[in-house]
Structure formats: structure tokens, C-alpha cells
């Protein structure tokens, strides 16, 4: 096959094909330059990759890493400039008289006080809020992997407290949306992801998830989210679902009305 066709299909698989690319691909299939059956089989194989088990590391990996980090931090403190200064300071102490030392200490304290007074306001608050966000994000990602559905729901709710769309948080939520056995957790995850609806990764992830979802409630929730976020590319996915599955009448109606809005 022509390399250009191969690149087109590769882009199509990862959802990176723009409208003109899609038209080109459709035309090539219509002209028989790309074998439709083969194309469809490759697409199905690509989609099937979603179902494969996800390897997870043992907690021992974290333990080893943090032990290494502690050791490195310890050796850094021993070898660092601060340590050398402390050594020098200790050597000097024996040679300086007490009044001189008291005077120097007083100057140091006053200087430090003034310095911290001037600098602390903004940067300190910013630093703190960023630290909080990191902690929340870490907690959320870990809780999403928990066995209890309640904990996973809590984790999803934590994401609503994160001010920025972080790629790790988004990936964790999308993974939950596509793999969590609990419908409630998945519905709540869609709600959480909607907050970051402007993010392209979120939009693509939600569209991609349509074909994966088997619960009518989750499908309806996704339809509402797609309409709200105006993700027009999702219409095709919903059409596919309507064609390929036997859905309850009400669900069909809901999807059809969403498609109408999205088209």
C-alpha cells in the first residue's frame, strides 16, 4: 500500500485526522484504493487493544524509589554546601569572642525578619496552593485505583477541587471512565471531566469512550455531556452505537435527539 495511505490510516486510528483527511480517506475507500474490509479489521483490532489487561506495578516499586530518594537526600545533605558551611562555622566559633558573636546573631535575626516580612506574602501562598494541588492530585490518582467504589467516587470528587486540568488527572479519570465496573463511578467521572471540557484530550477521550460504554445510563450521560460541550465529532460515534446495538426505545430517542443537536 502507498505510504501516504498508511499514514492517513495511522492518523485515523489515533483520532488525529482532520475533516479533509477523513474525506480523503473515505474517497480512497470508495475508489477501492484502500481495501475497506482490511481497514475495518485493523480498526477493530485497534479498538480491541482497549480490552487488554493493564499491568500494574507492586507497591514495592514505590518503597524502593522513596528509599533511594531518602538516601540521596541524606548524602546530599552530607556533601552539600550547607554542611561545609556548618563545619566552617563550627571551626570559627572557637575563635570569636562572645560580644561579637551576640552582635552578629542579633543582626542576622533582624535581617532575616525583615527579609521574610517583605517576601513572604504572594509567593508563599502560591507555593502552598500548588503544593496542595499536587497532594490532591496524588491522592486522587491513588484512590482511583482502590477496590472500594465509595473510595473511587471520593477520588472523582477530589478532582473537582483541582483548579487546573492536569494530564495525569485527566488520564486517570479517562481510565476510570473506560474501566470502572461501577456505573455510579463512571457517571460521576463524566461530570468531573466535563469541567475540563475545553481540553482536547478530554474531548477526544469522551468521544472514544462512547463505543466502550455498555450501560444505557452512562451513554445518556455521555450524550448530555457531548451536547453541552458541543463535541460534534461524537455524533458519528452515537450513530454507530445506534446501528450496532439493540438499545431501549427511550435511550434510542435520547441518542437521536443528541445527534440532531450535534450535527
Amino acid at each position: 500500500m502507498n505510504k501516504k495511505y498508511e499514514q492517513l490510516i495511522a492518523d485515523y486510528l489515533t483520532g488525529d485526522l482532520d475533516e479533509s483527511g477523513k474525506n480523503e480517506l473515505e474517497a480512497l475507500i470508495a475508489d477501492g484504493k484502500i481495501d475497506f474490509m482490511e481497514f475495518r479489521a485493523i480498526e477493530a483490532t485497534f479498538e480491541g487493544l482497549d480490552d487488554l489487561s493493564v499491568p500494574k506495578p507492586d507497591p514495592i516499586v514505590s518503597e524502593r524509589f522513596y528509599a533511594m530518594l531518602d538516601e540521596e537526600a541524606g548524602s546530599k545533605a552530607r556533601d552539600g554546601v550547607a554542611f561545609k558551611i556548618a563545619e566552617l562555622f563550627r571551626a570559627l566559633i572557637g575563635q570569636i569572642s562572645f560580644p561579637k558573636m551576640a552582635y552578629a546573631m542579633a543582626l542576622l535575626i533582624i535581617g532575616g525578619f525583615i527579609g521574610s516580612w517583605v517576601d513572604r506574602d504572594k509567593s508563599e501562598i502560591e507555593q502552598l496552593s500548588q503544593e496542595m494541588q499536587s497532594l490532591k492530585e496524588m491522592m486522587m490518582v491513588n484512590m482511583l485505583e482502590g477496590t472500594s467504589a465509595t473510595d473511587r467516587l471520593k477520588a472523582v470528587n477530589i478532582s473537582s477541587e483541582l483548579p487546573n486540568a492536569d494530564i495525569e488527572a485527566i488520564n486517570a479519570l479517562l481510565f476510570t471512565l473506560n474501566n470502572d465496573p461501577s456505573v455510579n463511578v463512571r457517571v460521576q467521572t463524566i461530570e468531573a471531566l466535563k469541567r475540563w471540557g475545553g481540553n482536547e484530550r478530554v474531548r477526544q477521550g469522551l468521544v472514544h469512550s462512547i463505543a466502550i460504554q455498555d450501560s444505557p445510563i452512562v451513554l445518556i450521560e455521555l450524550a448530555d455531556a457531548m451536547t453541552e460541550l458541543e463535541v460534534r465529532s461524537s455524533a458519528k460515534e452515537f450513530e454507530k452505537v445506534l446501528q450496532e446495538r439493540e438499545l431501549d426505545y427511550n435511550v434510542q430517542q435520547k441518542l437521536q435527539s443528541s445527534i440532531a443537536v450535534l450535527m
Binding site: K3, Q7, L13, E38, I42
Partner: peptide, 19 residues
């Protein structure tokens, strides 16, 4: 471009092996 070609060929081979 080379990665895209490789991706397509890898997917095609994967499909053939799976079949």
C-alpha cells in the same frame, strides 16, 4: 511520517497474527 507508517504496518501485522 516513518512512525505513522510503522504504526500502520504494526497494526496490520497484529491483525494478521490475531486472525
Amino acid at each position: 511520517g516513518a512512525v505513522k507508517v510503522k504504526m500502520f504496518r504494526a497494526m496490520k501485522e497484529l491483525k494478521d497474527i490475531a486472525l
